[in-house]
């Protein structure tokens, strides 16, 4: 699975400066709403489900990256977006580092394979330090999109 298969271009946000985990999740869900990927009703329920999932254990996977997600019955295909925060957000990550790069995934509950392949793609690409650093340094959504496209064309790994 490639980034362009699940990341909504119009919902990418950079320079997201918020105080905490809940706010960044709200901001990303709002971005999905603004890009037309989800509705207002879905937004509220998705944010709630993602926060509940975070209570089970942080999705901060290390290297300043988090993958907040939920399997949500209201979506029929995998919906995702990216956010970048220069100042970083406390996310209770396993390695204790602040999170600067977030991939949000909302996937249909009956498609666990797609969810797994998206996680696999994100983590495989982010193992490349240059790609990871460039993404965190992105100042505009267009920069993020370009990097994702380059990664999809195997320019990093």
């Amino acid at each position: 699975m490639k980034f362009i298969d699940f990341v909504s271009r119009e919902a990418i946000r950079t320079c997201v400066e918020v105080d905490d985990k809940e706010q960044v999740i709200q901001a990303m869900a709002t971005a999905l709403l603004e890009s037309g990927k989800i509705t207002e009703d879905q937004r509220e329920s998705i944010v709630e489900a993602i926060l509940k999932r975070e209570e089970l254990g942080s999705t901060g996977i290390g290297r300043g990256v988090a993958v907040p997600h939920t399997k949500h019955p209201s979506v029929t295909e995998l919906v995702g977006t990216v956010a970048v925060s220069e100042q970083g957000i406390d996310f209770d990550s396993l390695d204790g580092e602040k999170v600067h790069l977030l991939f949000m995934l909302v996937s249909p509950p009956d498609r666990p394979g797609d969810h797994l392949r998206a996680l696999e793609n994100i983590s495989r690409q982010l193992r490349d330090e240059t790609f990871c650093r460039f993404l965190k340094q992105s100042q505009a959504p267009a920069d993020v999109w370009q990097l994702l496209e380059e990664a999809d064309n195997n320019e990093f790994v």
């Binding site: 996977i61 290390g62 290297r63 990256v65 396993l94 666990p112 394979g113 797994l116 392949r117 996680l119 696999e120 994100i122 983590s123 495989r124 982010l126 193992r127």
Partner: peptide, 13 residues
């Protein structure tokens, strides 16, 4: 010992 690494396995059922 790395979540990032373990996730790259994409290990399904």
């Amino acid at each position: 010992k790395s979540i990032l690494h373990v996730l790259t396995l994409g290990a399904g059922q």
